[in-house]
Amino acid sequence: MIEVKELVKSYGVTGVLRGLNLTAPNGQVLVLLGPNGAGKTTLLRILATLTKSDSGTATIHGMDVAKNGELVRQSIGVVMHSPMLYGDMTVSENLAFFARMFGLPSPDRRIAELLQRVEMDRRADIRVRLLSHGQQKRVALARAMLHSPRTLLLDEPESGLDQRARCILEGIINEFRSADRSVIMTTHQIELGLQVADSVAALERGRVALHEPASAIDIAQLQARFSEPTEALGAL
């Protein structure tokens, strides 16, 4: 269970989150929508313990992200905009390094399993800087799952992914749901979001403007209200 209460975050005089409240039960996929600057990425960064909030609380599986950062990070897997991989190390070297950081004692089998899952096993010995952005995102997804996290935090994970990679992503999200684990994902692609979501929260000016089950969402209404870019829909 993820619970966010009255979360406030400002950068200088610019308020990004203004008393945001949100809950996401286990075994559910929560999709965050909203225009640029609505606070989606900031919320994910706070949940991922990368950014500290000014006030309010955020808990993941009962652990306060501000007070139990290291324990929280053991239970989450994160994919942000940037793949966060070492360009001059191979795919498997990157994963082996991060496995070491997550304390996995003999990660070879796990790495092989995940590379197969994201269909990057044939590129395991290629340096990351030689891969396309989409391929790097696949490796980032594998890294996020190395320690079998209970929750996945995905910040626009579809960006740069081709159709096949997007299918893999959807498959992984569905597997998390069926294993009673949770996913929080931001996206600008409403249709993709609705396809995978159990519930949808739309953020506007640092607050939750709408939080409903995905089945109750009217795409046209959502688009009209939050002025999502229409070209993203066209691309689908």
Partner: peptide
Amino acid sequence: MAEFHSERGSGDQTETAPTSEQ
């Protein structure tokens, strides 16, 4: 589903990476 049942287990178990508390 393989990724949820590896030999190492999961983020809901105690990992060996040392935290500040440890």
